[in-house]
Each structure stands twice: as structure tokens, then as C-alpha cells.
């Protein structure tokens, strides 16, 4: 299955997340990640949804979501026309004898140390999901105690904005 990214501007009110996630469950589509955040307009939240499927799933999901009254704008965010970013926090075992190795890896990946204890480190890294996957692969042998990924958030490249698009409910 391929991964597809959809970005949406949705009404910033309770129940909207349930409407969106409920639609996925009901139609049998799989969400890989869902990232919700505030926007420059306090009436709107921005959702970045990564789904696993094919072109059909992407087409159906976008159209079905577009019909929801609380989904104001929606579009697929293809890789070549979008900036994807994700943030990772990872707590890794870091005994004194391994610490310098880990710090070297951190520097290569331009990650940051954000917490330190006698036995552990928390590293923070931002980037495209692939970069995060690569970083995790390298750091894994040292022993990952726990980690948190935010899921992808995306913006389209260039001057075009999601807000410029027409909502389906304006077309009918």
C-alpha cells in the first residue's frame, strides 16, 4: 500500500475530530497518522492526514471528507508539491561510555539533546519522515526506551494556499 497525504482546514470546535476519524473507520480506510493544529485563523484547525491505500482510496477519502460541513477546505498534498515535516522525541539509553557516539550521530542528523539524565538522553529531531526513520535506525542499537512522533504536518510549496480552494459545499 502506498501512503498519501491530505491536508484540510476544519472548523475549530468539538466533535470535528470524531466526524473525520469516524468517516475513516466507517469507510474502511486506514489512517497512518493524523496531526491537528491551530492556524492563523482561530475559527479553523488544520489537519494533516496520512492514509495508506491507493489512488481510489485517496480520491474517495478526499471527496467524502469534503462533504462534511465542518471540513472547510481539503486537498491532497502530493510529495513533489509539498513540504512535509515531522517532529520526533526519542529517549535513548546513554551510559557514559556510549554517550559520545550518540552525540556524534546527533550532530550528523542535526538533532538536539533536550534532556539528560545519568543513564538516558532525550533527542529531538525535525524533518521529513524518511529522515526520522533513518535516524531511528541508527539510534536503535543503543536502546530506545520510548519515543513520540507527531505525525506529518504539511504545507503546499509556492504561493498557492489551501484556503484559496473551493469547498465542495460551495459548489452545490
Amino acid at each position: 500500500m502506498k501512503k498519501y497525504t491530505i491536508t484540510a482546514l476544519v472548523a475549530n470546535k468539538s466533535g470535528v475530530l470524531t466526524r473525520v476519524s469516524g468517516l475513516f473507520a466507517r469507510r474502511g480506510f486506514n489512517i497512518e497518522s493524523l496531526c491537528v493544529c491551530t492556524t492563523e485563523d482561530e475559527a479553523l484547525s488544520r489537519m494533516t492526514i496520512v492514509l495508506a491505500g491507493d489512488e481510489y482510496t485517496l480520491d474517495q477519502m478526499t471527496k467524502q471528507l469534503d462533504k462534511l460541513i465542518d471540513v472547510k477546505k481539503i486537498a491532497a498534498a502530493p510529495e513533489d508539491a509539498s513540504v512535509y515535516r515531522e517532529l520526533l522525541l526519542v529517549k535513548v539509553k546513554a551510559p557514559a561510555e556510549k554517550r559520545s557516539e550518540i552525540i556524534e550521530i546527533k550532530d550528523v542528523y542535526k538533532a538536539k539533546i533536550v534532556d539528560l539524565s545519568p543513564e538516558t538522553l532525550i533527542l529531538e529531531i525535525t524533518g521529513e519522515p524518511n529522515k526520522l526513520d533513518g535516524f531511528i535506525g541508527v539510534i536503535e542499537p543503543y536502546g530506545i526506551l520510548e519515543m513520540a512522533r507527531t505525525g506529518v504536518t504539511a504545507l503546499s510549496r509556492g504561493a498557492s494556499c489551501l484556503n484559496d480552494r473551493k469547498d465542495y459545499n460551495e459548489l452545490i
Binding site: Y56, D59, Q60, K63, Q64, D66, K67, Y168, L171, I172
Partner: peptide, 19 residues
């Protein structure tokens, strides 16, 4: 009129999404 009905169950060669 429902965009999501176009190509949902059967692919259309030509589709008009409107009333």
C-alpha cells in the same frame, strides 16, 4: 450532484458533478 458518488462503485467515462 454528489462528487463522492462519481467513480465510487463504477468508474464513469464522463461525469458531470452538478444538480
Amino acid at each position: 450532484i454528489d462528487a463522492a458518488e462519481i467513480d465510487k462503485n463504477v468508474r464513469a467515462d464522463i461525469a458531470v458533478m452538478a444538480d
